[in-house]
Each structure stands twice: as C-alpha cells, then as structure tokens.
Design a protein around this nucleic acid. Sequence first.
DNA 1: TCCAGACATTCACATTTGTTAAGAAATCAC
DNA 2: GTGATTTCTTAACAAATGTGAATGTCTGGA
Lengths: 185, 185
Amino acid sequence: MKMIETLRSRIDLPDDICQILLRAAIKREVGKNNILFQPPRVNRKCLFIEAGLVRGYKLIDGKDYTHHFFTPGWFATDFESFISNRPASLYIETLTRCSYLEFDREVLYRLYEEHHALEKLGRIIAEKAYLFTVEKLTDLQTLDLKGRYQNLTRKNPELFRQVPQKYIASYLGVSEQSLSRIKGR
Amino acid sequence: MKMIETLRSRIDLPDDICQILLRAAIKREVGKNNILFQPPRVNRKCLFIEAGLVRGYKLIDGKDYTHHFFTPGWFATDFESFISNRPASLYIETLTRCSYLEFDREVLYRLYEEHHALEKLGRIIAEKAYLFTVEKLTDLQTLDLKGRYQNLTRKNPELFRQVPQKYIASYLGVSEQSLSRIKGR
DNA sequence: TCCAGACATTCACATTTGTTAAGAAATCAC
DNA sequence: GTGATTTCTTAACAAATGTGAATGTCTGGA
C-alpha cells in the first residue's frame, strides 16, 4: 500500500508537499518476528506500514496485552511516547515480513512547523487515531465478549487467518480460553 | 477557568491569534440538568468548559453508559460526530450550573485553514484527546474493577463528591451494585 | 413538615470470565 | 520426515460481575 495515495484519500496534498514528505522517509524491510521498538526507550520514530502486519503490546506483571494490530496504511509507533516524548510502554513487533517508511520525530515535527498542509495532516492522523481508539473503548464498555468477537470478525476477518488466537484474545480483553469458549457457538 | 491561559499552557499562541479565537466564541451560561446535545443530530458545536461539570453518555438498549466527564479546561462535544460530521451518539448534559464558550464547527475549521497556529492547536487538542482515551482503554483492558476504582479516586477524587455514583459505575464499565460492593473494602 | 422520587446498599442467585491443568492439533526447525 | 515447540481446545473449579428485589437513605418540592 503506497503512502501518498493512502494519505491523499484522507486529505488534499499538493505534489511538492508529497515530495518533501517522501524525502523525509527511509524505506526499510524486515522479516517476521522482529521487535522494532522496545520500552522504556522513547519512541522517536514512526513507521508507515506499506505491507505486512505489526503488533503493539504491553507486558504488565508478565502478562501480554495486545494493544493494536498495525495493518498497511497505519503508522506503527507508541503514539503516546511519540507525542509526549516520554518513555514508551509499548513493544512493537512484526508478525510477518514487513516493508515500511520510517519517519523521525524531530524531522516530522519540523515539517509540521514549516508546512501548514503537513500540520493539517498531523491533525487528521491524530483525529483518526482518536476515532479508532474511542470506538474500541465503547465496544469494551458496552458489549460482551460475544459482541466484540462478532464485531471484529465482521470488520477484520482476515486477521484471524494471520494472527495467533491468543493475541486476538488479549486484544479483545479476555483470556485465550474464554475466546475459545465463545467460538464454539 | 479561562480558556486562553489554559490553551497557552499547552501551546504558544500569539496575542492576535488569541483575539481571533475569542471573537469566534459565544459565551453562555446554563443551569444544571440541561441537555446540551442530543443524538442523532450532528454535533456542529464544541464547548470550552470554563466552570461546572458536564457528562457525556450513550443510551444503548435503554442502558446508560457514561462516556466522559467534561471538567473545566475540556472541550465538551461528541468529538466523533464533530470530526466526522456524522450523526451523534452522545448525549451531553450539565450536572451543575455551567459557563462555557461555544464554537461553531464551520467557523473553527475555517480558522484552522486560515491560521497555521490554530491548525496546530487543533492537532494538539486531538492528540490530547487521544492520549486520554488510550489511557482509559488500557485501564479497562489491564486492570480489574478495584484497580480502576483506585486509579480514579487518586486522579480525580472530587468527582465522587459531585457525581451520582451510578454514573461513575458506568464510567468504570460496571453495574452500580458492583461498584458499591468494591467500595466496602 | 411531609411526601415522592432518586440514589445507595445489601442480599441471593445466575451468568460470565479467570485459572489451572491436561491433551489434541498445528507449526517449526533440523 | 521427525521431534520439539507452540498453539488451540476442553474441562473443572474458583472468582468476579450482572440481575432483580428489598430496604434504607437522602433530597427537593409542595
């Protein structure tokens, strides 16, 4: 998934601005099961995923909580750490071979200052991240496990073919056994 | 709580920009137990709360889910509806007498276009909303009721003196009886 | 002051989910 | 292929939470 087309579907970007953005990025490829970011190191990069699947998770008291699956078109980073410039709490690892564009925090924020259009892009990305998160929060607050599971299978069916089920379970906020139980019906 | 001081604590704003922002706002006061926004009407306003307490909640299958308590310094709106210009799902009501500054969506977005500094302000507000939401989501995903309750009493103790407990219960994602049970220890 | 309505607590019981453990199934490395 | 490892399912039991009902408490209005 090419970045410029993706961004242009969300916001109008002139050609010269696109070139500036592309020149700020480093294209990388990496194999599966690589840890890209590790707490508590501050997250000074964000990665536009072009292909592959990336998982963000937290380790708390030895337990693994999946926070997000980054799919092509998303920026993979510990957004909390990236925004606030504070220590990260999110592990970010590839689940498959991935290709992505890497942006540096300082470079990106300088571009925000220099170009109003990129500042606007930053706003829209932040708004999009908010919308996604608040939807997930509402699901967790108002639906039982069955409802959340059905929601996810409807919105993102291919996830179940790519991701170990225990990760999906922790993403939905339950144990893997509970998820297995629900599936049986 | 004055808006300009609050915003300036988060971002550097020149005097002339502040004046432009203030001229776009309408100052209002309203008594307690008033519904300010009601679904499914699209939320075309957002309200900077200067004083008082506002609750945002959803009604799903007749059940009441508290989504957020807007305190002074916050913008009260159905941010989902406001951003996307789609029908709202959030009821917004005053819990106490309130004073606030009202902004119109079209006016505000035009100011974003006209002034880079306000676009940046919009980005930072969206980022802040994201940070708050993701923290609440992580709490819900990783803590049991006791932990979430203790978190809330630590972060916002005065809430318990101002808000009926059943609203706090639904805010924490449990029934009022469960919250009452936990408190007893 | 008194009453009606809203709110909080408590209980019993049903339901859901977590936990531990065991074994089956699938996947990976060699 | 084959063995080792990981993942998935199932079961039994414990713990947490939801539900409905009864009761007590508080509050605001007539």
